[in-house]
Design a protein around this nucleic acid. Sequence first.
DNA 1: ATTACTGCAAAAGATTTGCACTAGG
DNA 2: CCTAGTGCAAATCTTTTGCAGTAAT
Lengths: 161, 161
Amino acid sequence: MNEVLVRVSSEAQQREARLLQALRDAGLRLTPQRRAICHYLAHTDAHPTAQQIFAAVKPEFPSLSLATVYNTLDALVRLGAVHALGGAGDGAIHYDADLRPHVNLACLQCHRMVDLPCEAVADLNRRVTAESGYRILGARLVYYGLCPDCQRTAREASPTP
Amino acid sequence: MNEVLVRVSSEAQQREARLLQALRDAGLRLTPQRRAICHYLAHTDAHPTAQQIFAAVKPEFPSLSLATVYNTLDALVRLGAVHALGGAGDGAIHYDADLRPHVNLACLQCHRMVDLPCEAVADLNRRVTAESGYRILGARLVYYGLCPDCQRTAREASPTP
DNA sequence: ATTACTGCAAAAGATTTGCACTAGG
DNA sequence: CCTAGTGCAAATCTTTTGCAGTAAT
């Protein structure tokens, strides 16, 4: 009955472990700040920006600086442990620690991003890795537009129907 | 013998016509500046940033302002006529006027983007459009990492082999 | 004629950087 | 220890905005 909860929880924990291990493997130091950032990234599905991560972690680490957040994100992206998805109509980069094959949907109006599971992406990943000659560090599979909520809002605002 | 050249040329011309038509359909005015920007976008495969477009078009229109470039790009992206691909390690957004199904490869070191044709993308587009409930305006299908050239450079710099 | 569009300059943000200090391994 | 990492503040850069003049339709 709480199998789902257990599984969800362990999903995030695995993600967190993976992030920490990536930093360790790269020979980078595991500071409390980096741990906290990894913890937050692993446990959210909000596709946060650097500023949002900063705001979320700051209360726990009042001395945390934005520079450290950017620094850590840079490292994680270069290690391929986190994906840099790009903007969503706001001028800021959104990040995703979920490496399972999926595409992301971004709303240009409310600036939110959500996941859309998609098995086809695994194939795409394989093919690109095999055919490109690139050393692939990450992906940015984002469709942007208007989410259902914002479509409704737009329709109400301008009486087209 | 020059069939390929003819076809390539008409490809770019079709793109240009499509961009101009999109602006027209939206009721936006076709100023010489917008025409020039569309012309450049349609005829390049460099996935330029706003600054690069500005630098490329400026000589033809010495009075062109960067604000107009951003303004025009914004319009084209919101109309779904141009895709906003996001950054490539530089902090600037790259744009792509080629709407044919493909993924893009970005090198985080030399900041170049190239296309990788991929039939599977057409399916992905269809599926996302059908399943998401979003009004899709554009896509950002980018894999980032190190291009073959930059991998070689990196290897020479640090004698790992 | 209208009214959207342009250019310019200034503003707003996001991200980066330099440096002295701190602490992880 | 010793050097990587941190926080802070300043710097940099991209992108946005306000406004008065200009031109597309």
